[in-house]
């Protein structure tokens, strides 16, 4: 992306990572992608009682080109899916996606022909937030978790290494439906 990608790994890169992470997370601008009920809870999270402005996020950018975070709030229907993808593609790196609510995370209670069963079928999601709809406090919790993720995001060669490690772990992991014996 920029000069921070070219730094060699070491003390310098780590400091730049911390600084860049801090800058990015403190003013993460969300893109308006409210679709259904979760959109109303997203709006109340921006409202005075559960203020998002204290995290620098009250500015919901209409244009995806100016936004960092796409909060997919609500059920994504089959007709809306190409639009979601197009808006995601129009966002500029670095970008993150928070899928808010069960409908965006996994299709929710609508396991049928009309709803995409999880927006991660279309776009890569960084953090999932269950709830129907999630309370504003839950949304703020998810956003703060995402902030932690962003703060510690590796850059440059560290990032390449991290991506490789994540891919290896995912290939070796047990599939969810095979994770048996957890209740003992």
């Amino acid at each position: 992306m920029g000069i921070e990608e070219k730094l060699p790994s070491g003390f310098m890169l780590t400091s730049v990572e911390h600084l860049a992470g801090y800058m990015r997370k403190s003013s993460l601008w969300p893109a308006t992608f409210g679709l259904a009920c979760c959109a109303i809870e997203m709006m109340t999270t921006g409202a005075p009682r559960y203020d998002l402005a204290r995290f620098g996020m009250e500015v919901f950018r209409a244009s995806p080109r100016q936004a960092d975070l796409m909060i997919v709030a609500g059920r994504v229907s089959q007709k809306m899916a190409p639009v979601v993808r197009q808006v995601y593609d129009q966002m500029v790196e670095p970008k993150w996606v928070l899928s808010m609510g069960v409908c965006a995370s996994s299709g929710g209670m609508f396991n049928n022909y009309a709803i995409v069963q999880g927006v991660d079928h279309i776009i890569p999601v960084d953090i999932y937030l269950p709830g129907c709809p999630p309370r504003p406090e839950m949304l703020i919790n998810a956003i703060l978790e995402l902030h932690k993720q962003i703060q510690s995001m590796p850059l440059g060669v560290n990032r390449v290494a991290a991506v490789k490690a994540a891919e290896a772990a995912a290939l070796a992991a047990t599939p969810t439906s095979q994770m048996k014996g957890l209740l003992r």
Binding site: N111, N112, P175, M179
Partner: peptide, 19 residues
């Protein structure tokens, strides 16, 4: 005669078919 169109849902340790 049109199917509901759901997909099986994966849980930890089980898969539940659509309704």
């Amino acid at each position: 005669d049109y199917p509901l169109g759901g997909i099986p849902v994966e849980y930890k340790g089980a898969t539940i078919p659509p309704p």
